[in-house]
């Protein structure tokens, strides 16, 4: 009998991802309809107890910890073996994985191994009147939303970070911790050797609360300073549409959209961005959208809460000036 929800707690050597706790919140909610327990599985080389405790505070009843040598932690095939092993041991009805690049690479390997279905980048998961798990996801570059059922067990889904609320941890919560063993053949597990970190990310846009995004209307790379100044004043991040990455003025880490980053800030200010479907796919779920555009008919207007028709070369410096004035008065 398959029951309960298993949350895969992503850690490849940099600590638990915060989106794991969002998954635990959702798992606790779904469990009331699906029965069984909330399980989590994680791999760790150190701080094993701390991780397990946190997972319990956020809703796990039972935590499986696979202890692996530090150098193997970033090897995805080790995680595949552990996750497959835990699914076989626990028989959960549903497995939740964060739809980070790591999760969207690991999840499908696990699903193919178990010959079951996997639904990518879900925006919601619910249990319908028949007691079936339904997964909600975007397709066609975000133009349509599909509701999907999985006919086999377990149901596996990768879930977009920040779509489920962060639950409150309960520091008095108790749960079981099981230390698990994995047979690991050697340093290059099944043909993969992790040589190390090549580059750090310049910025994690998906975590930004305020984003000032610039588009093709930008005339020179130097003019980016304008936006950096505004971002600094608001404690936000500068981002861009694809053309600025293509010409090499901005890094891929700052691109918003279908082939860049999906963001959900509290405020998204789109300056000189027309609102192509591929750009919207990355920012349409922002809490509040402001667009600054010379063209009042630009599609971005329809996706904005506030459309300022004007030249951002005039609007943004004025805005920065006014913010400075305000701050100096304090």
């Amino acid at each position: 009998m398959w029951s309960g929800v298993l949350v895969y707690a992503e850690n490849y050597g940099r600590g638990l991802k915060s989106s794991v706790f969002e998954l635990l919140g959702k798992a606790s909610e779904l469990r009331t309809r699906l029965g069984g327990l909330v399980y989590s599985i994680t791999l760790a080389s150190e701080e094993v107890d701390v991780h397990a405790e946190e997972l319990i505070y956020y809703g796990s009843d039972k935590v499986l910890v696979y202890r692996v040598p530090k150098e193997l932690l970033p090897n995805q095939l080790v995680h595949r073996d552990a996750l497959v092993d835990s699914v076989k041991a626990l028989k959960p009805k549903l497995v939740l994985i964060s739809a980070t690049p790591w999760g969207r690479s690991l999840g499908p390997r696990v699903a193919a191994h178990l010959k079951t279905g996997i639904t990518a980048d879900c925006l919601d998961i619910y249990v319908d009147e028949n007691g079936d798990v339904v997964q909600v996801r975007p397709a066609f570059t975000g133009n349509v939303i599909a509701h999907i059922k999985t006919l086999r067990t377990p149901v596996i889904a990768t879930v977009r970070p920040k779509v489920f609320p962060m639950p409150e941890p309960d520091h008095g919560r108790k749960g079981d911790v099981l230390c698990m063993k994995l047979n690991i053949p050697g340093n290059d597990v099944a043909g993969v050797r992790v040589l190390g970190v090549a580059r750090e990310k310049l910025v994690k846009l998906s975590e930004a609360e305020v984003i000032i995004s610039v588009g093709k209307g930008l005339r020179s790379r130097e003019d980016l300073r304008l936006f950096e100044e505004l971002a600094k004043a608001l404690g936000g991040q500068v981002a861009c549409s694809r053309p600025l990455v293509d010409v090499g003025w901005m890094e891929r880490d700052r691109q918003v959209g279908f082939s860049g980053n999906v963001v959900r800030p509290r405020i998204y200010i789109a300056c000189g961005i027309s609102g192509a479907p591929q750009h919207l796919a990355g920012m349409r779920d922002s809490e509040y959208v402001i667009a600054v555009n010379t063209d009042s008919s630009a599609p971005i207007g329809r996706y904005s809460d506030l459309l300022v028709v004007g030249d951002f070369y005039e609007v943004i410096p004025k805005l920065v000036e006014r913010i400075k004035e305000l701050k100096s008065k304090l």
């Binding site: 349509v144 939303i145 999907i148 059922k149 959208v289 996706y303 904005s304 809460d305």
Partner: peptide, 23 residues
């Protein structure tokens, strides 16, 4: 196939009470 699409919707825009201003 292990999955079935049970429903599909066109994305309806979040109800943004769009205000347009200038200058």
């Amino acid at each position: 196939s292990a999955t079935r699409v049970v429903r599909v919707f066109n994305v309806f825009e979040k109800d943004r009470n769009s205000i347009t201003v200038s200058g």
